[in-house]
């Protein structure tokens, strides 16, 4: 079995009177694609919120690389290497496609206002390197010719590819993807190929998915969530929405 990298231990999260996550324990492994399936309102996105720090658990813990992260701010968890693709994409619409990728790179000197003014040469050198990396990523997703286009003008499918490329640009080793194939035609396997490639690179890939054909095709492990609880599904059984 691959090295355990994200470990959720007896997580509980309640909103009002509703237990969105109910005493849930699960581990996600590097080099695997794990799919979370289940009806709407089952707690899948809440689990992602708990892992990424967007909400704090009422009980239980989340660990990443054996370090407890439940009490950390979301931006710190992201910097540690856990990235998210949101269900509603959340592209930076007024920025260009290239800028959407550029902003995702970690450790940018120029984001420090003082260094942006006092170290322009080093900032510009890093910026040129990042632009080259961004354009290589855009070539990987086939959008290099749209680099200077405002992101909001592109199609939903293209915006989703930009969001995935942005996620890759963060350098995250753990990727939480909320319905990565939603809104994409079944014939288009580009996103599935990207996810398989990322898992082969040794990343943790966890996806919430309602399209069971995609789950069947690429998931190494499948969990079903319902009413805040999780059960393991044999991959073959995932083709029947229960």
């Amino acid at each position: 079995m691959s090295e355990v990298t994200i470990e959720c231990h007896r997580l509980i999260k309640t909103f009002g009177g509703v237990r969105a996550v109910d005493d849930l324990s699960v581990s996600f492994y590097a080099g695997q694609i794990t799919a979370l399936v289940g009806p709407n309102g089952a707690g899948k996105t809440t689990l992602f919120h708990l892992i990424s720090g967007m909400v704090r658990p009422d009980a239980g813990e989340v660990s990443y690389r054996e370090r407890r992260i439940s009490n950390l701010a979301p931006w710190r968890i992201a910097r540690m290497g856990i990235g998210r693709l949101f269900q509603d994409i959340r592209i930076f619409g007024h920025l260009t496609v290239e800028e959407n990728i550029l902003v995702a790179f970690p450790g940018q000197m120029g984001e420090n206002a003082l260094w942006a003014i006092t170290r322009p040469v080093r900032v510009q050198r890093q910026e040129r390197e990042n632009i080259a990396k961004a354009n290589r990523l855009l070539q990987r997703i086939g959008l290099e010719h749209e680099a200077r286009t405002r992101a909001e003008t592109l199609s939903y499918g293209q915006q989703k590819l930009i969001a995935i490329a942005r996620l890759i640009a963060t350098g995250a080793d753990a990727l939480l993807l909320d319905e990565p194939s939603a809104g994409i035609s079944k014939e288009n396997t580009q996103i599935q190929d990207i996810l398989k490639h990322l898992a082969n690179e040794g990343k943790i890939v966890v996806m919430i998915e309602h399209d069971y054909s995609i789950v069947q095709k690429i998931a190494d492990q499948v969990y079903r969530m319902d009413a805040g609880k999780m059960t393991v599904l044999p991959t073959a059984a995932a083709k029947c929405p229960m």
Partner: peptide, 25 residues
């Protein structure tokens, strides 16, 4: 110079979607 730097760019990202900016670290 600030506006055209990565500092200005990340400010615009915050303007566009603060949650997404947080999720990028």
């Amino acid at each position: 110079a600030l506006a055209l730097s990565p500092f200005g760019r990340v400010l615009k990202a915050i303007r566009e979607n603060e949650v997404a900016a947080v999720a990028l670290g």
